[in-house]
Each structure stands twice: as structure tokens, then as C-alpha cells.
Nucleic acid binder design. Structure first.
Lengths: 144, 144
DNA sequence: TCAACTTTCACGCTGCGTTAAAGTCG
DNA sequence: CCGACTTTAACGCAGCGTGAAAGTTG
């Protein structure tokens, strides 16, 4: 089912969200106002869906507030713009933008690394408890 | 500064939360009602602080709702109780509880593994973009 | 025309932040 | 008695869920 224009309910199903959430995100400036039909019904493209999925990841995986996500998305949009212009416009002009973008990406990567490490620590502590539990269970089974 | 009894503000500083949040969690049944002074002021122990930190991890790292966290904490409390009784009470009686606890721990471990994998995927995508960006920057520096 | 969607309000719930007013601690 | 902290109570805000009432789509 590969359509490049769809109703809000289709977007909701593809992203695992609700129409209400999509309208709310649009209202808050996280999503651009999509095209409208003659009667005023929202019509979405596949690109729109991609953006929704990106935002959902930032919310669910990182638990960021919508305000913070909005900033990140604006930075990513700006980054994409800069990279396009870097090929058309002059070299020296675009370089500082590229370096700024690199710094932003590094920050994100470090932030993710920290998160991952802490989750792994939590997982290890659970794994230890599980191993200890299994020993207790095994003891019980040896001497009934 | 190792006290085993302290005011709510000290707990707040140690956990990085606010007194309001601690009182709210207590009200919602996440934290047990702590001891009170003569005048009715809450007095916390180091053990209380440990519980707060555990809850904070579940909220920040996993983004779970307070209701879900409450269930998890109750399960962990029950697990601790069962493991204590398993040494006193009969063997056959405690075994099913231990096995149920093991299943719960496995579920948590798998959930964490999934989270970690998705975060690593996100990190990889950022790393790729960063590498690509650095290529562009290097190109600009070679032909000024 | 009819079912199944859509639209814009608008109120409700969670998880606290933030005063306000009064009491406790040292 | 005083300043810093505490108490309960209450309203406010974000991020939606959940209808209600009316229009659009096929």
C-alpha cells in the first residue's frame, strides 16, 4: 500500500499514534501544516510520515519534551538546508555552518552513548538478580 | 555527610528531585509514608533515598508512567519478601513464587535489550551523518 | 443517501511547578 | 524571637484522551 497522499487516520495507523496527537503536534509547530483537500481535509505525503516517525522516536526513546524536540527538528531542518546550499553557494561561507552542525551531531551522539550505558548498567543489575534467583531455584530442585 | 535520618530537602538534593515531587509520589503510593518528627515533619532514612533513586531511574531512563512504576516496585517488594521467606518456609511452597519472579526479571531484561538496540540504531544513524559531514568539511579544506 | 471518516471546540486526566498561608526547627 | 525550612491546600500548565456537534468523502 504505497500511496504518497493519505488521510490523517492512515498516518495514525502507520505511526502508531492517534489523529488527535497529530493535530496537536501540528498546532504546536512540530509538524508543518499539510496540504488540504477541497473540503478542508488534511492530506499527508510519505515525507510527512517520515517526520512523524522521527519525532515519535525522540519522544519515546529519549523522553524529550515537545519543546526540546521542536528545537532539534528545527536544527535538523537547518542542517539539511545548509548541506544543500553548501554545494551551490561558495565554500568559505558554508564551512562554519557545517562545523556547527558537526558539533550538534556530536552532542547528540554523546547524549545517546550516556543513555545506552546507563540502560546497560540497569540491565546488568537485573541479570545478576536473575542469576542469583536461578541458583536458589536450582538448590530447591536438587534437594526435594 | 552520612546521616540515616534527614529532612525532605536533603532527600531532594541527593536525588535531584524537588520536595513537591517527593510528596506527590508519596501521595500516589509510590513511596511509603516516612517517619514524622514531634511537630509532624517528614524524616527520611537512607533506605528511603535508595527507593527514590530506583523510581527516578525507571522514570527518566525508561519514561514509564507512575502507575506502571508503582506496579514494578510492588513486584520488586514482593520478590524481596519471597526470597526471604524461601529460606525460612518450606521448599515446595516458595518455588512457584521464585519462578514467577524469574519470568518477571526476564521480561524486564528483554525490554531493556530492545530499548538499548533502538538507541544504538539511532546513534549509528547520527554517526553516519557526522562522518558524511566531516567528508564535506574535509573537501572544502583541500580546495580552498 | 449512508457509513466512515473528517473538522474544530472544549472539558478531563496525569505529573508535577508554583504561589499562598501557617506551623516547626535550631 | 528569627530565618530557613516545613506543612497542607489550591490553582496552573503540558500533552494529550475523549467526547460533542457538524461537515466531507466515496
Amino acid at each position: 500500500v504505497e500511496k504518497n497522499t493519505m488521510y490523517i487516520d492512515e498516518v495514525a495507523k502507520r505511526t502508531g499514534l492517534t489523529p488527535r496527537t497529530l493535530r496537536f503536534w501540528e498546532e504546536k509547530g512540530l509538524l508543518p501544516s499539510p496540504a488540504r483537500s477541497e473540503g478542508g481535509v488534511r492530506m499527508y505525503s510519505d515525507a510527512d510520515v517520515g517526520r512523524v516517525i522521527r519525532i515519535r522516536e525522540l519522544r519515546d526513546l529519549l523522553g524529550l519534551s515537545l519543546d526540546v524536540i521542536k528545537e532539534i527538528m528545527q536544527i535538523e531542518d537547518e542542517l539539511a538546508q545548509v548541506r544543500l546550499k553548501a554545494q551551490q553557494v561558495g565554500r568559505e561561507e558554508s564551512q562554519p555552518y557545517l562545523k556547527r552542525s558537526a558539533v550538534i551531531l556530536e552532542t547528540q551522539i554523546n547524549f545517546l552513548g550516556d543513555r545506552i550505558a546507563r540502560l546497560q548498567a540497569l540491565q546488568s543489575s537485573y541479570a545478576e538478580q536473575l542469576a542469583s534467583l536461578r541458583n536458589s531455584i536450582a538448590d530447591l530442585e536438587r534437594k526435594p
